[in-house]
């Protein structure tokens, strides 16, 4: 098994005027391809910060972050954009979709940026939306979809071009338990079918149960890192 993400001595300190906040302290982590990881921990423990570092949305104060063999912490804006476009899919807690685009257009947008042909885009986006259970809703705007449906579109968009890594920051936080469980099942199925690596941050015990590996953060440090079932 190859390593998709590797963090070495990663520290993140936020400075706000004179106040320093240590968001992450000496994080060391290796994540294998095809893993389905749950990142848990209390509020403020640094889950979002870690995901943002791995996805190159923010840069560490010190340490190395390697994604698919590339040093993310040393990349410039444009290289990071390329990396996110081709190798990483994101799902956030809410407001994941571009409001002026329909469900299908939101999915196709990523494909369009990759230069996929129109026919391929259409075929593929319809297929993936069907896979996440949104057949018949392809042409709805985000405002015409429920929270759970919007999250499904976000998942569809994140995985449509088969990135090696999907980062999901509390994707179920705004959903009821039934919808949350469905979304989790969906992501796990997708991970298995398409052989992608998922890292999902959450407070939700339900989510933790479905993880292959559970990583617990506390005050910016990893306190537990266990394989499950």
């Amino acid at each position: 098994m190859s390593t998709v993400v590797s963090c070495k001595h990663v520290n993140k300190i936020y400075r706000q005027g004179l106040i320093e906040v240590r968001a992450l302290t000496d994080i060391n982590l290796d994540i294998e391809a095809g893993d389905f990881i749950c990142l848990s921990g209390p509020s403020g423990s640094g889950k979002s910060t870690l995901l943002n570092m791995i996805g190159g949305l923010d840069s560490p104060t010190s340490g190395e972050i390697i994604v698919d063999g590339q040093r993310v912490d040393q990349m410039n804006k444009s290289a990071l954009a390329e990396l996110r476009l081709h190798k990483i899919g994101f799902v956030f807690q809410a407001y994941n979709l571009i409001p002026v685009l329909t469900a299908r257009e939101n999915v196709e947008m990523v494909m369009q940026m990759q230069g996929d042909s129109k026919d391929y885009r259409k075929q593929h986006s319809l297929a993936i939306l069907r896979e996440v259970g949104l057949e018949g809703m392809e042409d709805r705007k985000p405002s015409e979809l429920s929270g759970g449906q919007q999250q499904r579109v976000a998942v569809a968009r994140a995985i449509v071009d088969k990135p090696c890594l999907v980062l999901a920051d509390e994707p179920t936080a705004n959903l009821d338990s039934v919808n949350a469980d469905n979304l989790l099942k969906l992501m796990r199925d997708m991970a298995e079918q398409h052989e992608m690596t998922f890292i999902i941050s959450t407070h939700d015990p339900l989510v933790m149960q479905r993880a292959k590996r559970l990583i617990k953060l506390h005050d910016g440090q990893i306190v537990e890192n266990n394989k499950q079932n």
């Binding site: 996805g55 949305l57 804006k77 444009s78 954009a81 390329e82 990396l83 996110r84 476009l85 081709h86 990483i88 994101f90 956030f92 407001y95 994941n96 571009i98 409001p99 947008m109 990523v110 940026m113 968009r157």
Partner: peptide, 14 residues
């Protein structure tokens, strides 16, 4: 603002 952040997370350049 949020939307522009989203665009960047999707890999669109500034």
């Amino acid at each position: 603002t949020r939307e522009f952040g989203l665009f960047q997370s999707l890999g669109l350049k500034p």
